[in-house]
Amino acid sequence: MTMFLGTHASRVDAKGRISIPSPFRTVLRDNARPGDAMMIIRPSHLHDCLEGWTSSAFFSFSNALDEYDPFSEDHDDLATSLYADAYPLDCDKEGRVNLPKALKEHANLEGEVTFMGLGRVFQIWNPALAEERRKQARSRARELGRHKATSTREGSTS
């Protein structure tokens, strides 16, 4: 599978549609299974943004629910949070999707939007929040790198 890479600007048009960046459409098209929607868009569990998945990646990820008793509260909670707000969507011939109102409200999307590739998924952000997230992620990654380097050095002196 080709990955979602890069950060791309787009916008919500007057009819509420968002153009999916061309490189992301290529990944979605190349990974579409016959009979399935091109993508699944859902609210992020961690951030005020949306997550976009190829339908095949989303459904393979959701197989983790098989680990739970289907009649348990854990299964019900996870299934609700995973599926209840997930929308299967296809692009129109110009590469646009019409996001449900609840998704746009979750991510505060109006006017300009930012797409960020995260490998097997992509995110759709309000641009100001996207920039803040990128700064936060870089800072935390640097700190994690420092911590790992320190741990490795301390472990090798024993």
Rank of each mutant, 00 (worst) to 15 (best):
S72M: 09
A107F: 13
M116K: 04
H75Y: 15
M1S: 14
R33G: 14
N108K: 03
P100A: 08
L89C: 05
A128S: 11
L103D: 12
K15V: 02
L46W: 14
R29E: 14
L129S: 13
A14Q: 09
T157Y: 06
D66S: 12
D77A: 13
K135P: 01
G117H: 06
E131S: 08
D66R: 04
M1K: 06
A141M: 13
A57I: 00
L103T: 04
D69E: 09
P34E: 13
G16Y: 03
R146A: 15
R33D: 15
D76G: 06
K101W: 14
G35M: 11
K135C: 11
S156L: 07
T26E: 13
A102Y: 09
A128I: 06
Q123D: 05
E110P: 00
G111S: 02
G52D: 08
L89I: 03
I40A: 12
P88A: 13
G145P: 00
A64Q: 02
I20H: 09
E110W: 11
Q123T: 10
G155D: 01
G119D: 05
P21H: 09
W53Q: 07
G145E: 09
T157P: 01
D13N: 00
K101G: 10
G16W: 05
S62V: 05
S151F: 12
T114C: 10
R134A: 15
A141H: 04
I18S: 08
M1C: 06
F59V: 01
G117R: 03
N98K: 06
R29T: 12
H45M: 14
L99N: 04
S81C: 09
L144I: 08
A149E: 10
R96Q: 05
D85A: 13
L65S: 05
A130K: 05
D30L: 04
S151N: 12
A137M: 04
S19R: 05
D90I: 01
I18Q: 03
W53F: 15
R17S: 12
L109Q: 06
A79W: 05
I40T: 02
F24S: 04
M1Q: 05
E154T: 00
D90T: 00
S72E: 04
M39Y: 10
A79F: 13
L99G: 04
S55T: 12
I124K: 02
A84V: 01
A57L: 02
I40P: 00
S81W: 13
S139L: 10
E110T: 05
T114N: 03
F58R: 00
N31T: 07
L109M: 06
E94S: 12
R134L: 15
A79P: 01
K104D: 15
F59C: 04
F115K: 03
R120L: 07
G117P: 01
A102S: 12
R142H: 04
L50Y: 12
S151T: 06
A128V: 07
D74N: 02
I40N: 03
R120D: 14
E67H: 15
P23V: 11
D85R: 10
L5S: 11
Y83V: 00
R11L: 08
R138W: 11
S44E: 08
D90W: 07
